[in-house]
Design a protein around this nucleic acid. Structure first.
Length: 596
RNA sequence: GGUCCCGUAGCUCAACGGAUAGAGCAGAGGUUUCCUAAACCUCAGAUGAAGGUUCAAUUCCUUCCGGGAUCACCA
């Protein structure tokens, strides 16, 4: 429909269709679609038609409208067109179009909302990026949640997406951890005993927590004196070289971390097409840098650097004077490897915004080395998530980790489930898991991803109004109606409903549902799932308002025929609203539950 | 200090350069013989400051004030 209006407007105004702005007004009193074409072209039009009878943008808008009203292509779809405000042109869809859309929703089911905006553009999307030998923190959780939701949205908008994770399984942080672990195991002591214990067959969680502790000890030791620093740097080099002295311990501990992360991802419902590791790209990365010394890279104080300062950026070290490649050198090959395996039109890497400048430099260096990647590299630096009440973790003594946050939230949700709900323990746990994880995902996604956000643990995210649980709850309501209605299959035969008068609440829901495709497109364009969140919240709110005021089943009316037809329509409306909510939640990576 | 980002109601956040700046939480009040009250409805409350560009500025530009990120061998 959007396209039809744009084409028609383009025809009337003589503008390029691409230049026509057609938006969904925030205020629903301004129609289903609104265009500022008259306002934006007024100055220009005045110059070209000095003798025109209109004197202001409003007059011009009136003239445009009178022409649009003659366009037969719009007749079936547009109920009325009005000029408002300074000269906006507002369009209202016909009732029959709204009902037709309802039918589309019910028929297309999980496909409803998909568009071909991106025209099969191949997008490689990297997110997650947890490091081995450490525990995931909230930033990783955000990356997982944002990255997977964003890839889903880009996919729904027609893109071909390759979801990619990249893990730091080699580097100084690993050396720090293994150095401390080896110290502990040779010198005995508590950590040594703990190591022996988990090595033999400890729980996965205990193993990775031990690694986290060892990493922290190693870090402290590294900063405390020069001798230790040199020792750890030496160990780091040995790990890179695959020295037999350390390689077994590295492999074993690495596996622990990787297994742990796989389980965590599974729990979050997040899947990847390919896992990359720093250990598989570092040597090629280093070679690439060395092969381009004096051309693109430069020797400086024993290190190999890229002079970003030549391009208004800053200089960065790619290979250290120890001869070990840095993250920079690894990235230099990683993005090429990704391209070799799956040529992409667009590469997206999302990380916390503290790495914005880093990526400016690295992309520049990449483009210098690989001209074929020019214009294809995109970085999304998301905001930092801060806990409102900087709560400490009980297990590691650090700021609370990703896994603990998930567990705490799920526990909070369990307390919300009513005793009298008649659910079994398994059902309760299942619902708490879905709702708890959904609550975190939604609270991360509902804000602009580029801005820092505060996550309030104490006030509990699960209870908030504009929240994942609210949307899930609304969906559960629709499914409850569906189960109680014996006429689910009749949804598909809603042909002769156009004669009915719709009340305000029904109309509001229908008008909202029509916008789903546009919202997905907007969300994709802006790389911002919050557009979709706000929309779903709106749909849920409109539906709840309708649900509260009107009965869907068992309508009280003397007239049997009328009763049937109203009920039939409302069941369809409920079904359509449920479908849109479910599809939307799916895109956000949130599971919907039929009961809560 | 250089570069980049942010400043909207008591708190947490919306607003593709557009119309009367929207929500949620917290606060005050109301709604259940009826499909899930984790719901619905009502009230009160805000653009850091000053200029400029524009038919139109929370949004773009300049300056100031306040906060954050980053700036060589970590990732």
């Amino acid at each position: 429909m959007r396209e039809k209006i744009i084409i028609s407007l383009a025809g009337v105004t003589g503008l390029e269709p691409e230049k026509i702005q057609l938006e969904i007004p925030e205020n629903e009193d301004f129609g289903d679609y609104s265009s500022n074409a008259a306002l934006s072209t007024f100055e220009n039009a005045k110059l070209q038609n000095p003798n025109a009878k209109w004197k202001n943008a409003r007059d011009l808008a009136e003239e445009i409208v009178s022409k649009l009203e003659k366009d037969s292509r719009l007749k079936d779809h547009i109920d009325r067109i009005e000029v408002a405000g300074a000269g906006f042109i507002n369009f209202w869809l016909t009732k029959s179009d709204l009902v037709r859309n309802l039918k589309d929703v019910v028929e297309q089911r999980e496909k409803y909302g998909d568009t071909n905006l991106l025209k099969s553009k191949r997008i490689n999307f990297e997110f997650g990026q947890p490091n081995t030998h450490k525990l995931p923190h909230i930033g990783h959780l955000f990356s997982y949640i944002y990255g997977s939701a964003m890839s889903n949205i880009l996919e729904a908008a027609g893109g071909q997406i390759r979801r990619v994770n990249y893990q730091g399984d080699i580097g100084l942080h690993v050396a720090k951890c293994l150095w401390a672990l080896r110290q502990a195991s040779t010198k005995g002591g508590q950590a040594g005993l703990a190591y022996q214990k988990v090595k033999e067959g400890g729980a996965l969680t205990d193993r990775v927590i031990l690694l986290q502790k060892m990493y922290q000890e190693g870090s402290t030791a590294y900063d405390s004196n020069e001798t230790t620093k040199n020792e750890i740097n030496g160990l780091n080099k040995k790990i890179y070289e695959g020295d037999s002295e350390i390689v077994d311990l590295w492999k074993q501990t690495r596996e622990w971390s990787i297994e742990y992360y796989k389980k965590f991802e599974e729990r979050l419902g997040i899947k990847f097409d390919r896992y990359y590791f720093e250990s598989e790209v570092h040597s090629h990365g280093k070679e690439t840098v060395e092969a381009n010394v004096d051309k693109i890279f430069k020797k400086s104080e024993g290190a190999l650097i890229f002079e970003g300062s030549k391009y208004g950026l800053h200089d960065r070290v790619f290979v250290t004077n120890y001869g070990t490649p840095t993250y920079e050198a690894k990235d230099l090959y990683l993005e090429v490897l990704k391209y070799k395996e799956w040529p992409y039109d667009l590469l997206i890497i999302t990380t916390a915004h503290e790495q914005n400048d880093y990526f400016n430099v690295i992309y520049r260096a990449l483009e210098e080395v690989n001209p074929e990647l020019r214009g294809k590299l995109h970085h999304i630096g998301f905001g930092m998530v801060n806990l409102k009440t900087g709560k400490m973790s009980s297990r590691t003594g650090e700021i609370i980790g990703a896994v603990e946050l998930v567990n705490l939230t799920i526990d909070a949700v369990k307390k919300l489930i009513k005793e009298e709900s008649g659910l079994s323990v398994e059902e309760k746990n299942d619902i708490a898991e879905k709702v708890g994880i959904g609550a975190i995902k939604y609270s991360f996604l509902k804000n602009n991803p580029l801005q820092d956000t505060k996550f309030d643990l104490e006030e509990s995210i699960a209870k908030e109004g504009n929240s994942g649980p609210y949307i899930q709850y609304t969906y559960a309501r629709t499914q409850s109606v569906r189960k109680k209605s014996k006429r689910v299959e009749e949804f598909k035969s809603i042909n002769n409903l156009t004669k009915q008068q719709f009340n305000d609440e029904e109309t509001a829901v229908m008008r909202k549902l029509v916008q789903f495709q546009d919202v997905i497109a907007m969300s994709a364009k802006m790389y911002s799932p919050n557009v979709l969140c706000n929309y779903l919240y709106d749909v849920a709110k409109k539906f709840n308002n309708f649900y509260d005021k009107h009965r869907i089943l068992d309508i009280k009316s003397e007239n049997v025929e009328e009763r049937e037809s109203i009920s039939k329509f409302r069941i369809a409306l409920t079904e359509a609203a449920g479908t849109v909510l479910k599809n939307g939640l799916n895109l956000l990576g949130i599971e919907s539950s039929e009961r809560m």
